[in-house]
């Protein structure tokens, strides 16, 4: 393993993991306060990407069900059939503290699962109790401490992480965030509405920049020539085409698009006509 210290690790978490944890937390059995599970993902040198998770079976009311390693292995095999590149990278638990159960499971996994996958297993703590009105998500690395011959305990040291998104995940997450503002439930856009939504976004960005310019002119914000230059660079980056060339380009594109629309309508008319004729015969 190229990584000799957890300080070199960079941990990236995909939002689907946290959403799955939240959802499973809401579905837990009535008498359970926390849920636990396993984290899966991809390891590339010093970068650990957490992409998915399994939830442990909920213990039943009559007592804790012992964790069945065989069943877990079967589940993992099922998973590997679809995602052959994913390995186990750690464990997660919910609540505001890592407790004994979580610790026991983490220790079990570190022993049983091959350490060639990831040198420093991660533990993710998701605070579904929302202490301080905030869902704290904390990633830690698990170590055992003690002296040779006498193992004295385990320690979880926090590690920095970041959220990672594929482009599709980014669009989905932005859509979800936008929906929050309008009450949390929303239909999916079609193409044109999407362009309008983006232009609204551009509008907001322009507002922010204009506010900055006004502030600086009024003297409220200190003038920073570096920011000013980046702004001017950004504006200069808009390609400045001659009016006539631009008009030509517009016209050509418009003509192409109109023609395509015409063809489309033609085909649809043809379809309707064909159907009518067929049924008459």
């Amino acid at each position: 393993m190229a990584v000799s210290s957890p300080l070199q690790l960079s941990v990236v978490i995909h939002p689907v993991v946290v959403l799955t944890i939240c959802d499973s937390y809401e579905r837990r059995n009535e008498d359970i306060e926390k849920i636990h599970g396993t984290l899966l993902g991809k390891v590339e040198k010093e970068r650990i990407e957490i992409r998915n998770c399994f939830i442990d079976d909920n213990p039943t009311a009559s007592g804790k069900k012992k964790f069945n390693l065989e069943e877990f292995q079967r589940l993992f095999d099922l998973h590997q059939r679809v995602y052959p590149n994913e390995v186990i990278v750690g464990r997660f638990s919910t609540g505001d503290q890592i407790d004994d159960t979580a610790l026991a499971m983490q220790a079990l996994f570190s022993r049983v699962i091959e350490s060639s996958y990831v040198a420093f297993p991660i533990h993710l703590l998701v605070d579904t109790n929302l202490t301080d009105s905030h869902m704290g998500i904390q990633a830690s690395v698990y170590h055992r401490y003690g002296v040779p011959g006498n193992d004295n305990g385990s320690i979880f040291t926090p590690i920095r992480y970041a959220m990672g998104y594929y482009p599709e995940e980014m669009s989905a997450s932005q859509l979800f965030q936008r929906n929050l503002a309008i009450g949390g439930i929303a239909p999916v856009h079609n193409d044109m509405q999407h362009v309008i939504a983006t232009s609204t976004k551009i509008d907001e960005l322009l507002d922010e920049v204009l506010k900055y310019v006004e502030d600086v002119t009024a003297g409220n914000t200190p003038f920073d020539s570096k920011i000013g230059r980046s702004l001017s660079d950004a504006i200069m980056a808009v390609p400045q085409i001659d009016q006539s060339v631009f008009k030509d380009m517009m016209n050509n594109s418009t003509q192409d698009l109109l023609m395509v629309t015409y063809l489309g309508s033609l085909v649809r008319t043809q379809l309707a006509l064909a159907e009518k004729l067929n049924t008459i015969l």
Binding site: P15, V18, L19, C22, D23, Y25, E26, T128, L130, H134, M135, M163, M170, S173, Q174, L175, F176, Q177, N179, L180, G184, I185, A186, P187, V188
Partner: peptide, 17 residues
């Protein structure tokens, strides 16, 4: 239509996109 539970919404609101 897309819906998220309230707990998920708490998390989504926190995301700095």
């Amino acid at each position: 239509e897309i819906r998220n539970s309230s707990l998920c919404n708490v998390y989504l609101a926190q995301l700095k996109l």
